[in-house]
Nucleic acid binder design. Structure first.
Lengths: 105, 105
DNA sequence: CGTATAGTCAACCAATAAGTTGACTTTGAG
DNA sequence: CTCAAAGTCAACTTATTGGTTGACTATACG
């Protein structure tokens, strides 16, 4: 599995995306992250492990608590991959130009 | 599986991303797509099926050949999700927090 | 001290993913 | 008509995913 594989795989689960959304607001403990979900803490811990293995989240221990925070770099790589094809998704260059013009006027 | 789940899952495989990269250059038949890979045509066909189920690729039959082409919308949704956090990795923590809190209320 | 909290770990389960092969259908070309 | 190419389909294998539970360790608190 490449870095990009791991990043996209990590993002392909709604629970993990919700965790990322929460962490975007700031650091959180594992139990803070787990409480909103209707699943065991172990399950959430596994999701965090997936995010951590993908490099999207770092975990540091303070006392008995593990605090998680977002790591930017791999998500930027994923975004870069996607935006490299943006001109193709928006169709022809003409329609892309029209799209941009429509936003600016 | 939500649309976003499917899109990110589809993108989490290197073979499928290579298929997308090729399709970004234009329409291609299944056997054209399969030839560069060291795996059976059936396997590539399955990958195309995953992309097609996720809505990233459309397949049309002409004669005995299936032609594949890229579809924009779901990839745009994935990009939109990621770029919502772009401020995070560019360093503007506060504006991102405002953005997300705005979504939740 | 004793106990509750934060979390890990190992074992297990069911479902899905990624690949294979072999038999088959449909279509184009000689 | 005959044959090769394009592709599907079903069956199978192996590995991974996402979840569970129960036992355990480590830390904080009254």
């Amino acid at each position: 599995m490449t870095q990009l594989d791991q990043t996209f795989a990590a993002l392909s689960d709604g629970t993990r995306r919700a965790i990322i959304e929460k962490l975007a607001l700031g650091e959180a403990s594992l139990s803070d992250l787990a409480s909103p979900f209707d699943m065991s803490q172990t399950a959430v811990s596994k999701h965090v492990r997936v995010l951590s293995d993908a490099g999207l989240v770092s975990v540091t221990k303070r006392g008995r608590t593990r605090y998680c925070s977002l790591q930017a770099a791999p998500m930027k790589d994923a975004t870069d991959w996607l935006t490299a094809y943006q001109t193709f998704w928006t169709g022809s260059f003409e329609s892309l130009a029209r799209h941009i013009e429509g936003k600016e006027h």
